[in-house]
Design a protein around this nucleic acid. Structure first.
Lengths: 185, 185
DNA sequence: TTAATCATGTAACACGTTACATGATTGC
DNA sequence: GCAATCATGTAACGTGTTACATGATTAA
């Protein structure tokens, strides 16, 4: 629902191309918000029509031409307006659709071997993601000289959330493997 | 993506109406998969056309008429097939879109007061959800006499996941409140 | 020589939400 | 008297994904 506001947020840092925004998203918050170019470009277009953004086309020689978007006063107003009404999103954060857990939920249809395989592969993925957390932290640290301290402080909070959640997913899956080993079938 | 398979999973327990499925979903896994009647009825229709389900219309007097769906052999095959290929979902489980965290990420646009308000309201919601976990456990326990032990064991695993995740979200938010108090602005 | 980076866009499709429509029975 | 439960469905809309199209430069 709020790709719009994610885009406004990035552009409130500085004017950028759609490509730049996607890159910044990918480096700093790929695990909480995923975007595709096709969606970003469409959305930027619609936002410009609403008067939240302006764009300037830059002709380049050695590289493809590009379009730099900048946030307008209307856009800033919209962003602050949205930030002032977080109620729904605060509630929704705890009810996230999770296809993996649906599989655990339905695992009684399979056998012990399949259930354990599911859990072990989740464990592997957790470990791989935990190892990536430092990359995210480094990507944020690289921005520390460009942006206000408040900016990267907020970003680090999100990363800290990732750390704790990943650890508890790992704790869970190890416990779950034990339980399935002892009690399934 | 997998409402289809959630529906097949429920119907592999016993034939039910769309209304029954929604109720069971709501009681036992509302926090990992949300459904609307409108979507369920449409999906059941399409699944019947694919030959995964059959339905029987029951005329009732004191209550509205209803339609009971039952899984077919084709449907069971489809479910087992899907359960045998969990790869993508295992990976996707760790990259969930989270509008609340997007707000934290963008909170530098606001002030200390607004940031703290956001975090405190999240804390409240966490506490409220933690208090509801026992209701979920009881709803599952009520099914223990009807269904095979394997079924409710899997369901309890999902609830255990909820317990651990909720606790770590709470730990995070309390830490985040401290950090914002000390370091924001 | 192969992949990654830079850079934007369209079209079709899949999935999910909201609003609308109906209406009797039962418990507080 | 009001809300919840039982029970199914359609239409419009909003959001997100996949596939297609193009193509030069640079680093391994």
């Amino acid at each position: 629902m709020s790709l719009k506001h994610g885009l406004l947020g990035m552009l409130s840092l500085e004017p950028m191309t759609g490509y730049d925004i996607n890159k910044e998203f990918r480096e700093t918050m790929q695990y909480i918000w995923q975007t595709k170019y096709s969606q970003i470009y469409n959305e930027l277009d619609r936002m410009e029509q609403k008067g939240w953004l302006t764009s300037e086309r830059i002709i380049q020689e050695e590289k493809p031409n590009k379009r730099i978007y900048a946030i307008t006063e209307n856009g800033k107003t919209e962003l602050l307006d949205w930030l002032s009404k977080p109620e729904d999103d605060v509630k929704i954060a705890l009810t996230q659709k999770n296809a993996f857990l649906l599989r655990v939920f339905l695992a009684w249809n399979t056998n012990k071997e399949a259930a354990l395989k599911l859990l072990h592969s989740f464990r592997e993925v957790c470990l791989a993601r935990i190892a990536e957390q430092d990359d995210v932290r480094q990507a944020i640290a690289r921005d520390e000289s460009d942006y206000d301290r408040k900016v990267t402080l907020c970003w680090h909070l999100v990363t800290l959330h990732g750390d704790l959640i990943l650890q508890s997913r790992l704790d869970w899956v190890e416990k779950a493997i034990e339980i399935i080993n002892e009690e399934f079938e």
